[in-house]
């Protein structure tokens, strides 16, 4: 998550070029409009590759990269794309960046590419990316779209990491492959299985609900 936070401090200047409130576009993705916990978008990769923290982090980074690049391109082309064929254009832009990411990951680590499998290609159909392109980047300036993508990307990575960490610790007793819990800990195998993904996400959503309810009551 550090990788995404640090560039933000530099982007403050760029954002100040864009009119309107700037930091808000970034912050909203992290908590108030968190793509996973609040908007419930892009669920498939969230559930499928969050069985270990490492996979979750890699998937989050890949998705955030595609989100950032496609938001930038969509935003800069927003005056040239005809309205009728916009969705098709967005999908093509996204598919291009996903292909790049796919080959990049293959070049960086074959093991990682194997464990993420088809889910790298499936970033194309992550509703989160298309919905940001349609709802935000196609209507806003370059600087704002970039902040939005960074915020949403960071929020997505955060959510994926939350799930991945919980599932790996409970299901395997480790975090990033390092043993965390005492040796006599009985692993909850169910947490690494598909069902565990559903349960963990349900509990995180519950937590979010409780916190938000407390907030609105006070």
């Amino acid at each position: 998550m550090k990788d995404l936070h640090s560039p933000n401090s530099n982007k403050g200047f760029l954002a100040s070029l864009a009119e309107g409130p700037s930091t808000d576009e970034f912050i909203k993705g992290l908590w108030r409009d968190n793509p996973v916990f609040v908007q419930v978008l892009g669920m498939c990769p969230v559930l499928a590759v969050s069985n270990t923290a490492e996979n979750a982090l890699a998937m989050g980074l890949a998705t955030a990269f595609v989100l950032l690049m496609s938001n930038l391109l969509v935003s800069s082309l927003r005056n040239f794309i005809p309205k009728q064929v916009r969705i098709a254009c967005y999908i093509l832009i996204i598919a291009t960046f996903v292909t790049i990411t796919d080959y990049a990951i293959q070049a960086i680590s074959v093991d990682l590419h194997k464990s993420l499998g088809a889910f790298i290609s499936l970033i194309v159909v992550n509703c989160l990316i298309l919905s940001r392109a349609e709802a935000f980047a196609s209507k806003n300036t370059l600087g704002k779209s970039m902040l939005d993508a960074l915020g949403m990307g960071a929020g997505f990575i955060f959510a994926l990491f939350c799930l991945g960490a919980v599932r790996e610790i409970l299901g395997n007793g480790t975090l990033f492959g390092l043993s965390l819990l005492p040796g006599n800990f009985e692993e909850w195998i169910v947490m690494i299985l598909p069902a565990g993904g559903f349960f963990t996400l349900a509990v995180w959503l519950l937590l979010f609900n409780v916190v938000n309810q407390r907030k609105s009551e006070t």
Binding site: A195, G197, F199, L201, A202, V203
Partner: peptide, 12 residues
């Protein structure tokens, strides 16, 4: 959504 996910987990 939380409830739906819980059911989905049990179905899974």
């Amino acid at each position: 959504t939380a409830l739906t996910l819980l059911i989905a987990g049990i179905l899974s």
